[in-house]
Amino acid sequence: MKARIFAVGALLLGTVLATAAPAAADDSAAPACVSYGQSYRYLTATNNCEDGVHVYATYANGEQGVPHYVAAGTYTTIGSGYGYSNVSGLYLAAKTTVQVHYDAGFGNNVSIRGSVAPLSWASGQPCVNQAADLWECTVAGIPGGQAFEYKVLINDSTWSTGGNHAGVSGYGHDITPSF
C-alpha cells in the first residue's frame, strides 16, 4: 500500500513539475555562479559571481518567490523550503529604470518609494544624479512584467505632489514631478 501511495505521489509531483509556471518573459535564468540549496524549511541562494544579483525562485506549485538581493561572495535565505514546494528554477529579477526630470537644487537628492518590494512606502531608495535636472532611479528585484506604483521624494522627506505613478517592471519610465 505504501509503495502505491508513493508511486501516485511521485506521479502527481512529476505532473506539477511539468506544469510549473515559467518565469516572466523579461527575466532570465540565474547565471551558473548563483546556486541554491533547499531544506525542508528554507531556500538559500549562494552568489559566487563577481557582482551582487537580485534573484527570485519559482516553485513547482506555480508560485513565484519575492526577489532578494544576494551580495557577491555571500548567501542568504530567499524563500521557503520543500515543505512548501520544490523549487523549479532560480531567476534574475528584472531591472526597472525611472528617469526623473527635475532640478532638486544643490545639495539635495532624489529617492523613490513604491508599492512592491524591494521598494516600500516606509523608506526610499536613492536615485543617481545624471545632470542638473535628471535623476536615474534603478530598481532591481521586481519580477518582470509586474505592475507597481511609485512616487519620488526630495531628500527622502518631501513627497512629489499628485497621485502615484504607475509602472511595469522591466520597462523604462520618464516622469517630470512637481513638488
Rank of each mutant, 00 (worst) to 15 (best):
N155F: 11
A104P: 01
A72L: 09
G144A: 04
V152G: 01
L153P: 00
D26T: 09
C33Q: 09
Y42G: 00
L43M: 13
I142K: 00
S35Y: 04
W159Y: 15
K151S: 14
C137K: 04
S88W: 00
S157G: 15
V152Y: 07
A7G: 09
A122L: 12
C33K: 06
E63G: 02
S111I: 05
L119P: 07
G167R: 02
S160R: 08
N47A: 09
D51G: 03
A147Q: 11
I142L: 01
Y84P: 00
V16N: 01
A10M: 14
Y56K: 02
A147N: 12
H54S: 14
V98G: 00
Y91N: 12
A166R: 06
I112K: 02
G73E: 04
A132G: 00
V128Y: 05
T161P: 00
C33S: 15
L12D: 01
L92R: 06
H101E: 11
T44A: 13
L12W: 12
S80K: 12
Y82F: 15
C33L: 08
A3P: 06
P31Q: 11
N129D: 02
Y42D: 14
A57H: 07
A30T: 08
Q99R: 11
L17S: 06
P118S: 00
A117C: 00
Y82I: 10
G89E: 09
L134W: 03
A60H: 02
C33I: 05
Q38N: 11
L13R: 02
A60V: 15
E63H: 06
T76K: 09
D156I: 10
G81D: 07
S35N: 13
M1K: 11
G89Y: 10
T158W: 12
V98W: 03
S115T: 15
V98Y: 00
P118T: 05
A23D: 02
Q146C: 00
V87Y: 03
G172R: 04
S157C: 06
A23T: 09
A71D: 13
G163A: 14
V16A: 10
L12E: 09
L12H: 04
A18S: 15
L119F: 07
T176G: 04
G163W: 08
I5D: 14
G52N: 08
T58W: 00
Y59D: 03
H54C: 01
G83T: 12
S35C: 04
T46I: 05
G162D: 08
S120A: 12
D26R: 13
A29C: 01
V70A: 01
R4K: 13
P22T: 09
T15K: 01
A93K: 04
V55A: 02
S35G: 14
T46F: 03
A131R: 13
V16H: 02
V70M: 03
R113C: 03
G73C: 04
F6T: 14
V152R: 05
T77V: 14
E50P: 12
N109F: 15
G145N: 09
P126W: 03
N155I: 09
K2C: 10
F148H: 08
K95V: 10
D156G: 08
N48E: 11
S123K: 13
V110Q: 00
W121L: 07
V152P: 02
M1P: 06
S28A: 15
T19V: 13
H173V: 11
C137T: 11
S35H: 08
S39Y: 09
A57Y: 07
S85A: 15
